[in-house]
Structure formats: C-alpha cells, structure tokens
C-alpha cells in the first residue's frame, strides 16, 4: 500500500484514526507492517503490500 492510503482509511469498528507501523517497504510502497487503531487498539495486518481491514471476527474466515 502507498502511504497516501492513510488519508482514506480508518478503523472499521469505530472509524478512528490508524497508526502505521512499517516493517518492510520499497521506494513506492509499504509491503509489511501493521495498522493500529488509536481508539480501540485493534491491530490490522499489512501483508504482501495489502492491508487487511476486515473487522477481527471476519478476518479469520476470510484468510482461510
């Protein structure tokens, strides 16, 4: 994901801002990292350049 995506995403549960933590990036994009809700503390993974912003109860099912 590009860093500019931060302008349009929020926590799916409470619509609060997300904090970006980058583990791995290239010149253009964040490849691996996490997005943490500044309100509820829920953590959303970024893997292979794709943020998974499903609410936690849907995430398990969708990753199968």
């Amino acid at each position: 994901m590009k860093e500019s995506l931060m302008d349009v995403i929020c926590c799916p549960l409470d619509k609060a801002d997300l904090d970006l933590d980058i583990d791995e990036r290239d010149d253009e994009e964040i490849l691996t990292g996490t997005l943490t809700c500044t309100e509820c503390g829920e953590i959303y993974p970024i893997e292979d350049g794709i943020p998974n912003l499903l609410p936690p109860d849907m995430r398990e099912e969708a990753m199968a």
Partner: peptide, 27 residues
C-alpha cells in the same frame, strides 16, 4: 472481502485493500 481479489487488483497496479464494503473508509 476476498483477499485473492485484493491481490489480483494489486497485480493490476491498483491499490488493493481487503475490507467489508465501506467499513474502513473515512467520511
């Protein structure tokens, strides 16, 4: 919703996101 789809979108040069409808997008 489908992570396989988000991956295909990304391979087409589109910003891919896994999400349930509009829930993680700001006002």
């Amino acid at each position: 919703l489908n992570p396989h789809a988000a991956r295909q979108a990304r391979e087409r040069g589109v910003e891919g996101v896994v999400a349930d409808l509009l829930s993680p997008y700001r006002a």
